[in-house]
Design a protein around this nucleic acid. Structure first.
Lengths: 198, 198
DNA sequence: GTGAGCTTGTGAAAGAAATCCCAAAGGCCA
DNA sequence: TGGCCTTTGGGATTTCTTTCACAAGCTCAC
C-alpha cells in the first residue's frame, strides 16, 4: 500500500510522549480521509482501541514489518557522479533504516577515493572477491545509456530491488522490482497541476 | 493525468523516422493497457487514425500543451548542498524543457561561486533587485528544518509549483502545488514490493 | 456501577479507473 | 473499385478505491 510509508514517517517524527494516535490525526498528515486510514490499518490486520486510538510504537513496528524493513536494510549505490555522491552523503536514508554500504563506479580515477565514510569501488567488484557485504537493494545513478546493462549485472548478482534514476525503463525479470524516479516527469506533473490551479 | 509524461518520454526518445505509433506500442512502454492509452488520449481530445495509429509529432505537441510545457519552463533550485548542486548539473532537465535559471543558498561561503554555468545567489535576492529572471517553479533542496520557511518565501514571491525534496510536508496555500520526492519512501515502497516477489 | 464521550471497524453506497469487446472507419493493394 | 487488414473509439462491464454512516466497544469520571 502506497500510504504506509507516509504513516510511518509521521509516526517516526512524533515526539516520544505521543504514544497513541487517532485515525483522524494520521489522516491529516497523510492527506487522506480518516475512514481510509482505518481501512488501511485494518487491511494490514492492525487494530486500535475504540475510544482511544492506535498505539504508536506498535503501529510503527507493524508497518515496518509490512514493508519488509523490520531490520535495517543494506543498500548499494551504483554510479558515483554528482547524484550518486549526493545520495551517499544524504543522511536521511540512514535515519529511515537504510544503510548505504557500498558505492560503485567504473571510472578508475574515482575508484579508491572516498565519499564521506564510503570508498568508491570498482563495479567489477560486484562479482569477485573484493565484494565484502551483500545487499538486495541497489540505487542506480548511472548515465541513461548504461542503465540497462548495469541493471542486468546487478540482477545477476542477486539484487532484488532497484531504484532507478536514469530516465529509461530498465527491463528485468519479474523476480526483481524496479521503481523509477524521474525528476523531469515530476516537474511535468507539477506543471500540469500548476497550470490548473485557481 | 499521471501517465502523460510517460507517453511523452517514450515519444521523445523515438527515432525521427517513427512518425506514427499505435496504442499498443505506447501501452507497452508506459506499462499500461492499450485500451487505457486510447482512453487517456481521447480524454485529452486527441484522435488517431483507424487502422494506422497516432501521429507522433502531433501527439507530442498535444501532450506538452496539456502538461503546460508547450514552452520551455524556468526553474530555480533553492539549496546548494550536494543535492542542489547535483540537480543543477543534471542535464536531463534541460533536455525535457526545464531551464535551471538560478541556484540559491544562504551560506555566504557558497554565494558567488559557480556550479556549472550557474552562479549561486543569496536567497535574499529572491525579493530584491538582484533578481533578474522570474520563475514559477522551484525545486526545494534545503535541510528539512528550513523547508517550511523557505517554501513560504517562495510562495510570497510568486512561485506556483514546488518540487520538495526534504522529507517534510510543507504547508502552502491552495494556489500553489507541491510535489514530494522522498527517497526513503521510495525505498520503502520498493522494499514492500521486493518482499512480495515470486 | 453507570452513563457520557470518544474513536474504532465495517457494511453499504458512491465514485473512479481499468478492462472487455466489437462496430466503425481509414488505408493499402490487387 | 472493392475487399481485407489493421487499429481506433467508446458503450458496457468489472474491479478497485474512497467515502459515508453508524453500531459496537472501550475508558474515565463521578
Amino acid at each position: 500500500m502506497v500510504r504506509l510509508p507516509r504513516y510511518l514517517r509521521l509516526l517516526e517524527d512524533l515526539e516520544a510522549a505521543h504514544d497513541v494516535i487517532s485515525s483522524e490525526e494520521l489522516a491529516e498528515a497523510a492527506g487522506a480521509n480518516a475512514a481510509n486510514v482505518r481501512r488501511d490499518l485494518s487491511h494490514i490486520d492492525f487494530h486500535g482501541v475504540r475510544g482511544i486510538g492506535y498505539s504508536v510504537p506498535e503501529l510503527k513496528m507493524r508497518i515496518r514489518q509490512e514493508l519488509g524493513i523490520a531490520d535495517r536494510q543494506r543498500v548499494a549505490i551504483v554510479g558515483a557522479g554528482n547524484l550518486g555522491r549526493a545520495l551517499a552523503n544524504y543522511g536521511g536514508l540512514g535515519k529511515r533504516g537504510f544503510d548505504v554500504i557500498a558505492l560503485y563506479d567504473t571510472d578508475t580515477r574515482k575508484i579508491g577515493t572516498k565519499v564521506g565514510e564510503i570508498t568508491i569501488q570498482d563495479l567489477e567488484c560486484l562479482d569477485g572477491d573484493c565484494r565484502d557485504k551483500s545487499f538486495e537493494i541497489a540505487i542506480l545513478a548511472v548515465p541513461a545509456v548504461a542503465a540497462q546493462q548495469v541493471a542486468e549485472r546487478l540482477v545477476e548478482h542477486g539484487v532484488r530491488s532497484i531504484l532507478n534514476f536514469p530516465p529509461v525503463n530498465v527491463n528485468v525479470p519479474a523476480t526483481v522490482s524496479v521503481r523509477q524516479v524521474d525528476l523531469s516527469m515530476e516537474l511535468q506533473v507539477l506543471s500540469y497541476y500548476g497550470s490548473r490551479l485557481p
